[in-house]
Design a protein around this nucleic acid. Structure first.
Length: 281
DNA sequence: CACCTCTACGGGAGGCAACA
DNA sequence: TGTTGCCTCCCGTAGAGGTG
C-alpha cells in the first residue's frame, strides 16, 4: 500500500518512516494531520509533496514512485499495481548475446520468443510474427516485471526497440527476492515458494529454449509450442514469485502493509491455452 | 561461455536536535 | 555557543550471481 509509504518523501528515510508508523501514523492523511508532532522543516513542504503523491498515484505513474523509492524499495509498488497493470515479461533468445538485432534482421541474434502475462491475459510474441507489436502492446501497462531483466531482458529489448520502448516502471525480481533470502535462479525460487510447472516442460532450461528455436528454424514446426509453453511458464510464474517475495518482505521487516492472498489464481491454464491457440493458428 | 547490474561497504558532507 | 550523535544522501569500488 503506497499510501502507507513515506520514504519517497524528501528527508524521510527508513528510520523516520518506522518512527512514524510506531506513532500510529499509517497514511499520508495521518502524516499531514500529525506533522506538528515533528517540528522539523523539510526542504519541500509536506503538503506539496503529498499532493503530488496523490496525483501521481491517481494517474498510475509508477515510474515516478520507482524513482523516488529507489531500487531497494520499489517492490512496494507491487500491491498497488498488481491489478492488471503489471506486465510480467520473459524473453528467450537464440543464445548469441553479442548480437541483439531487431525483428526481421538478416543476421542471426536476438529475441526468438517473448511472452507477457498480466494476471488475466497471456500472449506470446514470436520473432518474425508479431514481435514488432510489443512496444504498442506494452503501452497499456504501468509496470514491467522481469527476473534479472535489468541485466538481461531489458538490454535486449532496448537493442531491438530503442531505449524508450516502455515508459513505465521496471521491477527486477532478482534483487527483490534476494533481499528476502530467496536466492538462486527463477526455477529454484519457484520451488522454494511452492510453485509447480506443467509436467511437459518441468525440466526445461533456458538452454533448451535455445535448442528448440534452432530446431524450429530447421523446419521442426512442432518445436514452437513447447518453446512457447516454457516461455509462458516463466512469465506466469513471475507474478506468483513477486507476490510471494512481497509477503516475505512485509513479514521480514514487519511493515504495516496488507499481504497478498496467494490462493491459486483461477483461469491461468485457460489463459495459457488461449495464448497457445492464438500463436499456432 | 560473456555480459552486466546489484549489493555491500565505507567515508564524508550537511542538516538537525539535545545537551552542557 | 560549541560539541556530539543521529540521520539522509551521495559517491566509488569490489565481487557475487543470474541470464540463454
Amino acid at each position: 500500500m503506497l499510501t502507507r509509504t513515506f520514504i519517497h518523501l524528501t528527508n524521510i528515510g527508513p528510520q523516520r518512516e518506522r518512527h512514524y508508523w510506531d506513532e500510529g501514523i499509517l497514511s499520508w492523511d495521518d502524516l499531514l494531520a500529525k506533522r506538528d508532532l515533528f517540528d522539523d522543516s523539510p526542504p519541500v513542504p509536506l503538503e506539496t509533496e503529498l499532493t503530488l503523491s496523490r496525483e501521481r498515484l491517481a494517474e498510475g505513474d509508477a515510474r515516478w514512485f520507482e524513482e523516488r523509492l529507489g531500487a531497494e524499495h520499489a517492490w512496494r509498488m507491487a500491491a498497488e499495481f498488481d491489478d492488471g497493470r503489471i506486465a510480467y515479461l520473459d524473453i528467450e533468445t537464440d543464445g548469441s548475446p553479442g548480437d541483439h538485432l531487431p525483428d526481421g534482421a538478416e543476421r542471426p541474434g536476438g529475441t526468438t520468443v517473448l511472452s507477457v502475462w498480466d494476471g488475466l491475459v497471456a500472449r506470446v510474441f514470436p520473432r518474425g510474427k508479431d514481435l514488432d507489436e510489443l512496444p504498442r502492446y506494452l503501452s497499456r501497462y504501468k509496470v514491467l516485471c522481469t527476473f534479472n531483466g535489468k541485466s538481461f531482458d531489458i538490454p535486449y529489448l532496448e537493442q531491438c526497440f530503442g531505449k524508450s520502448f516502455f515508459k513505465g516502471a521496471h521491477l527486477d525480481l532478482r534483487p527483490i527476492t534476494k533481499a528476502v533470502g530467496l536466492t538462486g535462479g527463477l526455477k529454484k525460487i519457484e520451488k522454494l515458494v511452492g510453485i509447480e510447472r506443467p509436467k511437459a516442460i518441468a525440466n526445461y532450461t533456458g538452454w533448451d529454449a535455445v535448442k528448440l528455436w534452432g530446431a524450429y528454424k530447421r523446419g521442426r514446426r512442432d518445436a514452437l509450442e513447447p518453446l512457447a509453453r516454457y516461455n509462458l511458464a516463466d512469465s506466469v510464474n513471475l507474478q506468483a514469485v513477486l507476490r510471494s517475495a512481497y509477503n516475505h518482505a512485509v513479514a521480514l521487516h514487519q511493515l504495516p502493509f496488507r499481504r497478498f492472498d496467494l490462493l491459486q489464481e483461477e483461469g491461468v491454464n485457460e489463459a495459457i491455452e488461449r495464448a497457445i491457440q492464438r500463436l499456432m493458428r
